[in-house]
Design a protein around this nucleic acid. Structure first.
Lengths: 252, 252
DNA sequence: CCCAGGGCTTGACCTGGATCAATGCATGCC
DNA sequence: GGCATGCATTGATCCAGGTCAAGCCCTGGG
């Protein structure tokens, strides 16, 4: 498994006056031809590059007043909800190009913590300004609607209380596909988070994660070396995951 | 328990040229003073009243192209996702004033079925028209953002995989509060759905729902007669539910 | 160098809730 | 009326995964 990338990818490009970061969620807007150029430059102007956040440090905290949404530029960020009895629940891991903070619009406070899993850089979008801008940039409004809508179903994945194997298969495959959509290898990748976090996110005990990984390995469907993962039989994993994960998104 | 309402509430009011239905999600928009009256009348014009849908009939189906969002006017509607292996999962029950279909924006197809639980009337909002309108009506845009954002966290409730008792407590209390927010009794109400649906929604077996209801009853916290429910100790239920249900919303 | 601490794995045991099965009780249909 | 159907409840059994415990390996610090 020497071919595995052992270090995180090179620092994200920062975009320039004319173009946003290549991974940016608003990339499509930027690429469109009929966009009001002045408004577009305003959108660009409103973006604030922030970071680095070291592993474990907060981007925002539960209860903080909602001021902005954030797009991950590089690194990985987890969103953590406080559960009952001091437990916490990791709702998701967010890769470069993904947006966090949208759930805060409703109550105007963040309902969860956002914590860097490894060193992370983000883009910050002041929300009031963004919302004003969208009245002049219908494409951006549409994109925002899309982003919000996308997040609605996301938690539904665990809803059927699938078996541990199905959860893990869906998790690995989902990660693989999201990485692939951002230009990384779909077959071979590195888990950025510790087992405990995977377990928490999937509502399993860390021990169970270990056991299932071993089971999948013994069946010859994956190779595991520490946090390095190789998917040998994504087809079998997909069969296992069943309807859990979204359609093999042909994004954009 | 003779005081229990044994029939569903009177038919919802239909609003008039100047005001929307009293339960309508866009009620606040309507009440605002500084709204562009012409645009507002357009919003009203765009609403289409549909129904009745008899119990079991579809408002929309999984995979259908997304054309509109819907607000429940009266009755109760469930949203059902197809799970793996032919199972289905009930993501939520939607009361009058609540909006369904928002999750379809992302893929431009409905990701779930919407099925009437009892006789239901709805309002239909053509989405393209609505989205165009929002560029002139910032309040409506903000309301849409709020609605979308609200739905993001909703599935997170089951995320911690709480015990059966906690789930049921949270479910009953949540229902009670949502009903109260719409002017019904918070203490005494009628479950509109069968046990099987409750079980499915909470990821429990119907037998477990029965047993837990009995347990809560034996502790003197609720009274159950068929689908009639009386909450005797909402405080205890809230303690049980813990952090599962949202803060006792002071809505708007 | 040794040691401490954390992440990961593996084994042994236990339990909450699923599953299977039977019964009671409505409602609707012929 | 008599029967079928479907909902609800209760009892008996089973198992997936949680919990507890032990051991391994790696890294970093004194």
């Amino acid at each position: 498994m020497a071919e595995l990338r052992s270090k995180p990818p090179a620092p994200a490009d920062d975009g320039d006056a004319a173009n946003f970061c290549s991974t940016c969620v608003f990339g499509t807007v930027c690429a469109a031809h009929d966009v009001d150029k002045i408004a577009l430059s305003e959108l660009h102007f409103l973006v604030e590059h922030i970071g680095p956040f070291r592993a474990g440090s907060h981007i925002f905290r539960t209860g903080e007043p909602f001021k902005a949404i954030y797009a991950v530029r590089s690194g990985v960020v987890k969103t953590v909800y406080a559960g009952s009895a001091g437990r916490e629940y990791i709702a998701g891991f967010h890769l470069p190009g993904e947006v966090i903070g949208l759930a805060a619009i409703h109550e105007q406070r963040f309902p969860c913590d956002a914590i860097a899993v490894d060193t992370a850089y983000l883009c910050r979008f002041e929300f009031r300004t963004l919302a004003t801008l969208t009245t002049r940039l219908p494409q951006v409004q549409a994109e925002l609607f899309r982003l919000l809508s996308k997040d609605i179903g996301s938690a539904t994945v665990l809803a059927g209380e699938p078996a541990a194997d199905e959860r893990l298969a869906a998790f690995l495959l989902g990660l693989s596909r999201r990485l692939a959509a951002r230009g990384f290898s779909a077959r071979v990748f590195r888990l950025p988070m510790v087992r405990r976090d995977i377990a928490n996110h999937l509502n399993l005990a860390p021990e169970t994660v270990s056991r299932v990984l071993r089971r999948l390995h013994d069946q010859g469907w994956i190779r595991v070396l520490d946090r390095q993962i190789e998917l040998l039989r994504p087809d079998e994993l997909a069969r296992l995951a069943g309807a859990l994960l979204p359609v093999p998104q042909v994004r954009r």
